[in-house]
Amino acid sequence: MPFNPVQQRDHVSTYKSLRSLFEKNITVNSISEVLATCNVGDPAPQIKDQMASKDYDVIGVEENGIVIGYVLRDDLREGSCKEYTRSFSPSDLVSDSTPLLQTLFIFKNTERLFVIEGNRITKVVTLADLQKPPVRMLLFGVISIVEMHFYQIIRDYFKEDSWKKHLSEKRIQQAEELFLQRKARNEGIELSDCLQLCDKRDIVLNEQALRELLGIESKSKGKDFFKKLENLRNNLAHSQDLNTQNSWNEMFSLIEQTESLLEKCENI
């Protein structure tokens, strides 16, 4: 069944605006920490003890008031910090205006990033900072936009609740019960408003034409992707570690796949 192009463009514009709010207005600065520093000539053992007492794994190294590199606590032995100073590479550095979502993708290839404000390196971000609320807000927002897109696709593609053919009687009954509860509160809704993410997933994955439009290779691969996405959403909702069961890189890949899916949704 064809989509209504005008109606779809309106929805895409709305979702793009919401997506922009999450993806562009939340920057790396929302999770960065001020970079503690030492002097290039400071004794390495002393600095190592200070880092241990403050639980710092990395600090900047200054020379003449300018941060010229950094040291890792595990590297420090005898001598001065100069002997253990590592230079910054371009891949270590990001601007303070870098979108947080883009920052996540950069972390696929590093354990820490240093933030440039103006022409100075002033802050640092590590993997531990990815557990902070702004990251959780961002990821939950991205997943919610996927769900919003699926809801609209189902409304446009399936007329007169014809999506029911893709759900079990139990799932339909649960949606109908929620529908009646919400109607009792005078909410102006349709039955499709009461579908859960797992319902929307099954409806879309069971329709070959929609799978092709969204670039989903097969029903099984689609189910695997959405299982991981739902697990991530559950971890976010219950304040669990974001990488409890999977590595960080697996989570970054999942978010990249989600971004790709959103682009397909916007282009339908």
Rank of each mutant, 00 (worst) to 15 (best):
F3G: 00
P5T: 06
Q7D: 12
Q8H: 13
R9S: 13
R9V: 12
H11N: 12
R19G: 11
F22D: 06
E33H: 13
V34I: 15
L35Q: 02
D42Y: 06
M51R: 00
S53G: 10
E62C: 10
N64L: 11
I68Y: 05
R73H: 08
D74E: 15
L76R: 00
R77Y: 09
P90R: 08
S97M: 10
T103Y: 02
I106L: 15
V115P: 06
V124Y: 02
V125E: 09
L127R: 15
D129P: 03
K132Q: 13
P134N: 06
R136E: 06
R136G: 05
G141N: 03
V142N: 04
I143E: 04
F150Q: 05
Y151K: 12
Q152A: 09
Q152H: 14
I154F: 00
D156T: 07
K164Q: 13
K165N: 09
H166D: 08
S168Y: 04
K170F: 12
R171S: 11
A175F: 00
Q181T: 10
R182V: 06
A184H: 10
S192I: 03
D193I: 01
D193E: 00
D199I: 03
V204W: 01
V204R: 01
L214G: 01
G215M: 04
G215C: 04
D224V: 13
F225P: 01
A237S: 10
S239H: 13
Q245D: 14
S247C: 05
E256T: 11
E259Q: 14
S260A: 14
S260D: 13
